[in-house]
Structures are given as C-alpha cells and as structure tokens.
Computed example of a mutant assay.
Amino acid sequence: MAAFADSPMLLREVSSRLFWGMSKVLDNRQGLVAAVLGLDDCPFPESPIQLQVVLPRGVPVGVLFIENAMSFDATTRSGSSLCAGMFVVYASGFKASAKRLRRPGGASIFYGQLGCLGAGEREAFERWLYDERQLPVFFWGDLDWSGMRILSTLRATFGEVGAWQPGYEPMRDHLLTGGGHRPEAADKRGQQPLAATGCSYADGQLLPLLDTLGFVDQELFNFQECRVG
C-alpha cells in the first residue's frame, strides 16, 4: 500500500490493485488505511459522486433533489413553474447525501442541456455546493422508509432540507385513498422504519401513513400531477 501513497489514485483503485481486483474492500476503512501508512488521514480519495444538474436562468431561489432518474427527467422536461428558479439535481438515491459532495473533487457535475449552460449559472451552483451558500433545499423521492431516510441523511449534509410538498401531496392523497402497496409486494421488506426525519411536514404528514397504508413509488406520478399546497 505504501507504494501507492504518493500516487493520484482513488481508494477503490488502490483496493483493486491490492485485493485481486476487488474494488470495495477498503470502503469505509480510511482510518485503517491511514494507520497502516502512519498518516493522519487516508491519502486516497473516494470516487467522485456523479451529479446531474439542470440549471435555471437568472438568480436561483432553491435546490430540488430528486431520487429517481425517470422523475428527474420528467421534471426537467416539464417546464413547470413549480420548480422555476431551482437547481434540479439527481444523484441516485443515498449518494446525494454523501458529505464529500460539499468538497471540491467530491463530485463530477454534469449540466443538462435542458437548462441554462452559462458560466455564471454553473458558478452559482458550485458556489452553493462548495461554499455552502444558503438556499432553500428540498427533496422529492419515493414515499417509503428508504425515501424518508434519504431525506434525513440529506439534512445531515445540507442543513434544513424539506420534503417537497408539491411532489409529496399527491402521493399522500394516493395513500389515503387506498392506492399504496405493501413492502413485500415491491421487494422492500428490508426497509427499516424511521422515527423522524427532522422535517416537520414529513414527520407530521408522511411518516405516520407508512406503517398502516403502505408505500408509493415516485414514478407513479408525472410532473403535471404535482401541485402547490
């Protein structure tokens, strides 16, 4: 391992070299790596997280993280005023909550052609991401325990993240009218209940429904079904 210490290799690249092509052996073992090398910190960075971002024109008013790729695509193509002025971001589930996102080099950012591609708009997003400029941040994903846990972990990385009500309200209505599915019907038996997310809307209006009424996948709803209030 010491032979790689001064190289610009990622942690999984080092793992692959040391452990017969297995890239994940050193995941979450940075402390052990540092101890073996006699260093204060692990010298090998984790793989950058890929962020897909659609930028608004002009001054941004908020950030919307979307859990699922299909819903991200539908949202960014809709042209709806509900997300006007917002950075719309997709990072595949729990990856969006990784703390390394907020460090330069922790993310590979891909800007979508459906949004603005100007240098000023890109700089505005990166100032928010890396310099922790304050903007309202929201999350919209599946209405299940896993989705609520993503919301909770996003709050640990990005502060006061709220469940995005225009997306969750029709999903909540769907549950209340008997349209949900049980965890076992969608191979979600392993999802663990969550006592609270820290978001008052999610904790008061969404979590209490999951134990008794089941789950709803985000992809069930097209963006035209989202609403204000």
Rank of each mutant, 00 (worst) to 15 (best):
A2S: 02
H181E: 15
F65I: 00
N68R: 14
M9W: 09
V137F: 00
S71V: 14
Q52N: 05
L39W: 01
M70K: 09
S81Y: 09
F19C: 04
S97W: 09
G159S: 04
G38R: 13
F110R: 13
P170I: 11
Y168I: 06
A119K: 11
W145H: 01
H181M: 14
Y111W: 10
C42M: 13
R77G: 07
G38A: 10
D173H: 09
R17N: 01
F87K: 03
L151G: 01
E126A: 14
G214V: 11
M148L: 09
P104C: 02
L18G: 01
E67S: 04
E123W: 12
I150V: 06
F72E: 02
N28S: 01
A156R: 08
V161P: 01
L64G: 00
L18I: 06
P56G: 13
S15D: 04
Y111D: 09
D217K: 15
F4Y: 07
Y201D: 07
A124L: 01
M70C: 06
F94I: 08
E184A: 14
V216C: 12
R127I: 05
Y168W: 11
F72S: 03
A69Y: 13
G167I: 11
L135R: 03
T212I: 01
S15Q: 06
T75L: 09
D173P: 07
A84T: 08
E123D: 13
E132N: 15
E132Y: 11
M148V: 06
V88M: 07
H181D: 14
R155W: 04
S200E: 13
L32V: 13
H174M: 09
D40W: 01
R149L: 03
V25R: 08
E121W: 03
A34D: 08
R155E: 00
N222C: 13
L220D: 12
N68T: 13
T197D: 06
P45H: 03
Q113K: 11
P193A: 14
V25W: 07
D131F: 10
E123H: 10
P48W: 06
D217R: 15
G21E: 10
E219F: 10
V25Q: 08
S152W: 06
Q113D: 11
V53G: 05
G105H: 12
M22K: 05
M148G: 02
L213P: 10
R172W: 11
H181C: 15
P136V: 05
S152K: 09
Y130I: 14
E219G: 15
P43R: 03
D73W: 02
